[in-house]
Amino acid sequence: MTLVVDHLTGGYGRLPVIKDESFTVQNGETVGLIGLNGAGKSTTIKHIIGLLQPQQGQIKLDDIDLKQDITAYRSQIAYVPELPVLYPELTLKEHLELTMMAYNLDEQATWQQAHQLLQTFRLDDKLNWFPINFSKGMKQKVMIVCAFITQAKLFIVDEPFTGLDPLAVQDLLDLVQAKKQAGAAVLMSTHILANAEQSADRFILLNHGQVRAQGTLPQIKEQFGAQDDNLNDLYLRMSKEA
């Protein structure tokens, strides 16, 4: 399933924050969304998941238009936000059960997958814990597990490495790789450029709410005229432009 963002302009109220953005995220690939603070990454993601309505342009998953069928559109998406959003009155087990109900998942099969992920992220003995008992990194792991037990066609991961220890970072990168190999599309926004360079197939560089460059790393180097630069160098070049 391919995400198509076509000439997207939007923001908050009448103020456009992102302007005429066009890009795709295809099945079986990871795309890194890169930009300075205020470049429009979070605003772009909020439009893609349907929290903000476009002022102009179109967002589609294959033939499913966000505006025309938001329920069918959202059922294909799993989202890991930058800041964990958990219900204080629900245990970890109940969060997983709620996710299974929301996505209409087969409980027996999904629990098998959930237990594997809980072991991977060292949460398997904490099913009866409430969010108040979790550290920031543990809350982020809960969000990751809830998202990745789904059969979503598009995974949107916003600054996923915040608060994660190095082992959990590698576990997440392995999980993203597995979903990509299974045919899912992954859009990942991050400031940790070494991880992005390691895991992403293509990149979208945002600057002042517009796509400054996009493509593979060699293609972006060519667009900047900087063949010897790595992703961090290109990011610094863009910051100087800003």
Rank of each mutant, 00 (worst) to 15 (best):
L167N: 15
R122L: 11
N133M: 15
K136A: 10
Q151A: 11
P166V: 13
P166M: 15
I156W: 05
A152I: 11
V142G: 03
P160Q: 14
M138Q: 02
G163T: 00
L164A: 06
N128G: 12
K141P: 03
L164Q: 03
P160R: 12
Q140T: 05
D125Q: 14
A152F: 12
I132R: 10
M138I: 00
K153N: 12
L123C: 11
F121Y: 03
N128Q: 15
K153S: 11
I156G: 05
V145M: 09
Q140E: 03
F148A: 10
Q151V: 06
F121I: 05
F121V: 06
V145R: 05
F134N: 05
I149V: 12
V142T: 11
E159M: 14
I156S: 08
V142H: 01
A152W: 14
A152S: 14
L167I: 15
P166S: 14
I144Q: 00
K141E: 05
C146L: 10
Q140C: 09
K139H: 01
T162K: 13
D124T: 06
G137S: 06
D165H: 10
P160S: 12
T120C: 09
I132Y: 13
G163C: 02
W129L: 09
M143W: 04
M143R: 05
N133H: 15
S135T: 04
Q151R: 13
N133V: 10
L167W: 15
M143E: 13
V157Y: 06
S135K: 00
K126G: 04
T120S: 13
K153Y: 07
F121T: 04
D125N: 12
V142Y: 02
E159R: 14
D124R: 07
C146D: 11
F161K: 07
S135Q: 04
P166E: 09
D165A: 09
T150A: 06
S135N: 04
V145K: 05
T150E: 09
Q119T: 15
K126Y: 05
P131I: 02
T150F: 04
Q119I: 11
Q140D: 05
L154P: 07
L167Q: 15
Q140V: 10
M143Q: 14
P166W: 14
L127Y: 01
Q119R: 14
I156T: 04
K136N: 04
N133G: 12
F161H: 10
D158S: 08
A147P: 09
D158W: 06
V142A: 07
P166D: 07
W129V: 05
I149E: 07
M143Y: 03
N133F: 13
A152L: 11
F148E: 04
N133Q: 15
G137N: 00
V157T: 02
A147T: 10
F134P: 02
L123N: 02
M138A: 02
F130G: 00
T162P: 05
L127K: 07
D158H: 08
L167A: 15
V157D: 01
F134I: 09
C146G: 08
K126A: 10
T120V: 07
A152E: 13
A152D: 11
F134A: 07
K153E: 12
E159W: 12
K126P: 03
F148W: 03
Q151L: 09
